[in-house]
Write a protein that binds this DNA or RNA. Sequence first.
DNA 1: ACGTCTGTATGCATCTTATATAACAAGAGC
DNA 2: GCTCTTGTTATATAAGATGCATACAGACGT
Lengths: 134, 134
Amino acid sequence: MHTDVQIPLDRLTLEANGVPIYVQIRDQMLRAIGEGTLRPGEQMPTMRQVAVALKVDLNTVRHAYGELERRGAIVILRAKGTFVAEAPPRIDPNDTEMRVEELAHRAIAAARAGGVEPAQVARRIVQIVKKTGG
Amino acid sequence: MHTDVQIPLDRLTLEANGVPIYVQIRDQMLRAIGEGTLRPGEQMPTMRQVAVALKVDLNTVRHAYGELERRGAIVILRAKGTFVAEAPPRIDPNDTEMRVEELAHRAIAAARAGGVEPAQVARRIVQIVKKTGG
DNA sequence: ACGTCTGTATGCATCTTATATAACAAGAGC
DNA sequence: GCTCTTGTTATATAAGATGCATACAGACGT
């Protein structure tokens, strides 16, 4: 095997700032996916690859990947690997509505906690999506 | 006794994202100080005020304040209160911008993972913020 | 002196994080 | 079939984070 997914492996870093390791991994991966550094369907770095690269325990990486899966960002396939999730089919308009609501509130909370104007984040989202296609 | 320091107290929020509480408090305070919302010499919210406002243990707040002191951001005076240091650590000018970038990308990833158009979430954010004030 | 506000400190219980080790299970390729 | 890779699970251990309760100590205003 040599389909090397090292693109995001090199960017992975850990800071000793009190933030749990699995949170740092989870958030950095999430960002990589949002950026398009990792594209839908693409293989993610192996749990063991990440564990070795960051010198952390396999279970810690699993914790991070588990959260990403619960959020629908990735799909974990036993014995095959983990992959960036494809856009799931959304048929129920009501379901979509609620999801949007929740996502919006989450984003607002995150922005405020980060000392940032939510509207600014919203504008940036539109900007990025417009440029990258969405 | 009423020199109200509630300015930053209202802005304090806690997210259930795996980041330790004391880290969230520490970083939000650090930012408030760095961007001048809390000015040098000004009194900080009392540890107990923060504890009550966030419904968190006093020791947890103390942990956060302890780190702020070690970083030279604040000065703790027993029985008197805690105050913003005269020369608090400067904040990276690009900090806000980088944070926006991070938040935007994460939001995009979260939206797509939920099968939702990021732009739709962005619109809803603006809508909510406009109504609620922010 | 007294009461009240401030930070400081301790003990205990509980949950979470992280590591280390080890084994197990399923797909892919030879 | 065998082997390699991948994720999965389990156990033990240590350290850290959080809460709750309780107490202590110093400064200040009256």
